[in-house]
Computed example of a mutant assay.
Amino acid sequence: MSEHQSEEFQQIEKLYDFSERLNASKDKSQNVEDYEGIIKMSKTSMKAKQLASQLIPRYFKFFPTLSTDAFDAHIDCIDDGELGVRVQAIRGLPLFCKDSPDIISKIVDVLVQLLNTEEPVERDAVHKALMSLIRQDPKASLTALFTHAGVTPTTDDQIREKVLNFIRDKVFPIKAELLKPQEEMERHITDLIKQSLEDVTGGEFKMFMDFLTSLSIFGGKAAQERMQELVEIIEGQADLNAQFDVSDTDHIDRFISCLPLALPFYARGAPTSRFLNYLNNHIIPVFDKLPEERKLDLLKALADISPYTTAQEARQMLPSIVQLLKKYMPAKKTAEEMNFTYVECLLYAFHHL
């Protein structure tokens, strides 16, 4: 046995001694020296670090005065150059929270930063640790996780993308298991999602909306107010409070992509007024100035929403529709070529209003 192996063996022996005394002790808080010894051993050889990474969280709750030293030592193991040490330390993170739920947010923050790892084994350990925390305390863990799903001035886009992928691939598919009590937790995750929608991409927004519509609180028996809530989320994404700028193609695209998402909720009784008012007051008056490739999409959107209008909304919209029909369905004697697709959309809307 080499000198290094002999030293490592002695370190492991010491760690087992510390652990055995702690296990046997009826008042573990008195075994301060043993816990200090474990912390000290976490800074030695690779195998000692791996074992210490199991023992530090196991006895963490008994030594509040050493909590900072213990946690810092564990984080040092997570930052270690050896993959085996890092993985073992990551696996130990959820154990800190079993008896100290107040630090769940802190542990989630640590794990989120580790999602960026390129090592598959390490990434798998991070995923499992996060899922372990979410199962321990879904409300606190998801709250902490979703703080990294939104866009802030300090957001790391790469980390945020990893968080969103984790939520999509690991959390959403097992919502029935995690969201208990169901109504309370579905309400909670809905609120978390609503807080995370600032500056999301179209794909991210659709992912969140697909998930929300899968929740029982927005299911087939949901009240009309629930449908209205979903429509308001979509209206927020469409930015209906903004002044319309005909050159802002991003805003036009968001309007066009958001409207179809709202149609199922209009069919279930949610009011269409805000989308229609915006279309009627801001977009149709400058229709001629819109990019050609957006005009048809907007007319299709108008046709899609027209069956769900109220009588009052229809009266407000009809003059605008008639004006567009006059423009795109000229009198027979003119030489202008009729745009049949535009006219088809406008006639469809006209007959449904």
Rank of each mutant, 00 (worst) to 15 (best):
E177A: 06
I75A: 00
K14Q: 15
N241Q: 10
I38V: 15
N31A: 15
Q136A: 07
T213N: 07
P291E: 08
I107G: 01
N280A: 10
G81W: 01
I38P: 11
F9R: 15
I193W: 05
P138T: 13
M338V: 15
S100E: 08
F71S: 02
R254A: 07
L178R: 04
Y328D: 06
F71K: 10
T249V: 09
T155E: 09
D245E: 12
Q113V: 00
R91F: 12
N116I: 05
Q224D: 00
E33W: 08
Y59F: 15
P319H: 05
F166R: 11
Q158R: 13
R123V: 00
E344S: 14
D102L: 02
A222Y: 03
D191G: 14
Q195N: 15
H74K: 03
P57T: 05
I233G: 00
E118W: 03
G236I: 02
V171C: 10
F265L: 13
S306W: 09
A223W: 00
S105G: 13
T155C: 08
Y59M: 05
G150A: 12
T341M: 08
Q237E: 10
L111Y: 02
L353W: 00
S247A: 08
T154F: 13
V163Y: 11
E8A: 14
V126H: 01
L240M: 04
E225S: 12
L346I: 05
